[in-house]
């Protein structure tokens, strides 16, 4: 059995190192079963205007058992620090949580974050008492600046949001992790179980994914695969992998083979 410390983000502790989203599922029933299979304790939601022509009825929150999952609202879609801060404040009021996944988008094609606006919003939200988890590019300088701004974790992307390309820049993710004193959570780009394992083997503290689970042919089965891959990658990191070498090194004795001359 893996004996590991819990993931600590600000004043919150989690046994699971996998954070999952609520978007893009074929149905809310599939989403609920995928959440359960993922073992996640933290799930993300977005914040949007209520449709005034249909304000009642079941909302997303009715499908999340809050005794089991903490909610991590995001500021997805915001393009300015000002909008992200107001969205975070509305999320706190609606959902009674100081946790916020800060996302300030700089461009709709790449969905890369606007670093300047993200850092500005992070400073403001930290001042306002939020536990801030910012989505950011795999840029060691921006990550350091967000840490210095008081963020509770930093969340560099593995690849563009929804791309499923896996960890595009593993060496930089390692550099970010080595220099960080807050948890590093790889957010975006994980497409399948091996991507999750690769990211965790780099030593990052946790993973956040949505499309990788929700857009699988069988999201519930993929959620279970991601859970195991996250755990396997974490265990491999803690175990410490063997050194790589160019040439072979036999695992069996090279002496006392049959037919060989006596020593």
């Amino acid at each position: 059995m893996l004996r590991d410390e819990p993931l600590k983000v600000g004043r919150y502790e989690f046994q699971s190192r996998l954070i999952v989203g609520t978007g893009k599922y074929p149905s809310l029933d599939v989403m609920q079963r995928a959440h359960e299979a993922s073992g996640a304790e933290l799930v993300t939601v977005a914040i949007r205007r209520i449709h005034l022509d249909d304000p009642s009825g079941k909302t997303l929150i009715d499908y999340i058992d809050r005794s089991r999952y903490r909610i991590l609202p995001n500021t997805a879609g915001c393009t300015t620090a000002k909008d992200a801060v107001l969205t975070a404040q509305l999320a706190r009021e609606a959902l009674h949580t100081d946790l916020i996944k800060l996302e300030v988008i700089g461009d709709t094609q790449t969905l890369y974050p606007d670093t300047t606006q993200t850092i500005e919003a992070a400073r403001e939200l930290v001042r306002d008492g939020f536990t801030v988890l910012p989505y950011i590019t795999d840029d060691p300088i921006a990550c350091k600046q967000l840490e210095e701004a008081g963020c509770a974790a930093i969340m560099p992307l593995a690849a563009p949001i929804g791309s499923g390309l896996g960890v595009c820049n593993p060496y930089v993710i390692r550099i970010i992790k080595e220099r960080a004193s807050v948890p590093v959570i790889v957010d975006a780009g994980v497409g399948t179980a091996s991507d999750a394992a690769v990211a965790m083997e780099l030593g990052v503290d946790a993973l956040l994914m949505n499309t990788g689970v929700a857009a699988a042919r069988d999201p519930v089965l993929m959620a279970q695969a991601m859970r195991r891959a996250t755990e396997a990658g974490r265990m491999a990191y803690l175990a410490g992998r063997m050194g790589k070498r160019l040439y072979a090194s036999a695992s069996s004795p090279v002496t006392d083979l049959i037919g060989s001359p006596a020593p």
Partner: peptide, 24 residues
């Protein structure tokens, strides 16, 4: 929320009413 009762709407106000929706 505790201030909703006491808050009068004024002419020209811009009001945003939000909730949580599916997202990642």
């Amino acid at each position: 929320r505790p201030l909703h009762e006491a808050t009068k709407i004024n002419d020209g106000d811009a009001i945003e009413i939000i909730h949580a929706v599916a997202g990642g």
